[in-house]
């Protein structure tokens, strides 16, 4: 099966700035791909290349089997796009803008349009200049979600939406998925990514640093363990895969374990006689902190009682 989005070694420069520096991204049909990275890492730039708005300097990009630059007009009949910063025409009403973007784009399903306006609780007769930030976002979302697109590209779609509307958005995306649509979603809201996306790609400084399912990514990080054993456990500190070892007394210690080494470490612990054990899987935050942190070094934002934000050298 050909990928819905296939990007390899993508390079985009703005004068001296290398916004994308060999980025890779692959989204299979029917997937929801979370697209993550710190501010200025190149998410919007990648998306604009995929929408044929920016011309790539080097590398490959294919969207729905076509070239995003040369086949833009044809492709855009199959893609719905919501930009990060929605700007509306001050003199056009919300309803007019929905029709404009919908009909010029992947078409509009009148029934769905009415339903989405209802669900997002939008007044379509207001003029563009009078909408609040969240309502501007809704206008673009309704236009995108009311059409017949195969692929949805969202650049921080829920920025400015209230929690209720965020839920409406997540439900709507869920419905798109059940219809077999593909979604690329750039977001800074981790809860949203966790609940919507089965795959994530994390980029930093224009390069892909991690890609895979959330489960796979968790596997690459560390679990923190607080254990009490019947026999003394001081020797555990020297075991491969154990770090940040802190002995409270002879029988109790906290430390971090690389997930890949968990089986070995657990069997060693079992040999010491486990009295009590508490382990904490890495949260998504920890996962991101680790990748967002500059040069892979710790960010003080990482919670001190977990050892998730390890240095790059610790990676298994």
């Amino acid at each position: 099966m050909t990928a819905a989005i296939h990007v390899e070694d993508l390079v985009k420069t703005f004068g001296p700035v290398r916004a994308l520096d060999g980025l890779d991204l692959r989204v299979e049909p029917g997937q929801v791909m979370g697209f993550l990275g710190p501010n200025g890492s190149g998410k919007s730039t990648t998306i604009r290349v995929l929408m044929g708005l920016l011309r790539r300097d080097a590398g490959q990009a294919t969207v729905l089997g076509q070239d995003p630059w040369h086949d833009a007009v044809e492709l855009h009949r199959r893609i719905a796009y919501v930009p990060g910063d929605v700007n509306l025409w001050p003199g056009l009403s919300g309803g007019e803008i929905i029709d404009l973007l919908g009909r010029l784009g992947p078409g509009l399903d009148q029934g769905r349009r009415a339903e989405m306006i209802e669900r997002f609780d939008l007044d379509p007769t207001k003029k563009g200049r009078t909408y609040s930030k969240g309502n501007r976002q809704k206008v673009a979302l309704i236009a995108a979600l009311s059409g017949h697109a195969e692929l949805f590209v969202f650049d921080e779609p829920t920025s400015g939406l209230d929690p209720l509307m965020e839920t409406v958005f997540q439900e709507a995306v869920g419905e798109m998925l059940s219809e077999g649509k593909t979604v690329l979603l750039s977001s800074h809201i981790l809860a949203e990514v966790e609940s919507l996306c089965d795959q994530v790609t994390i980029i930093r400084e224009g390069r892909t640093v991690e890609a895979g399912t959330l489960a796979e990514l968790r596997h690459l990080t560390r679990t923190s363990v607080d254990v009490t054993t019947t026999r003394p456990l001081a020797a555990m500190g020297a075991v491969d895969g154990v770090s940040d070892f802190l002995a409270h007394d002879e029988h109790r210690a906290t430390f971090a374990v690389a997930n890949a080494d968990l089986p070995v470490v657990m069997s060693r612990l079992a040999g010491l006689g486990i009295e009590a054990i508490e382990s904490q899987p890495p949260t998504l935050e920890e996962l991101f902190m680790r990748h967002y942190a500059v040069d892979g070094s710790d960010r003080s934002a990482a919670p001190p009682d977990t050892a998730a934000a390890g240095s790059a050298g610790d990676r298994p």
Binding site: L92, G95, D99, L100, P124, K127, T130
Partner: peptide
């Protein structure tokens, strides 16, 4: 003050020249 606009677009609007 701003007056409200139409809830739907005129059929000529979603067209490059119309816009």
């Amino acid at each position: 003050e701003q007056r409200p606009g139409p809830p739907q677009a005129d059929p000529t609007l979603p067209h490059p020249l119309g816009l």
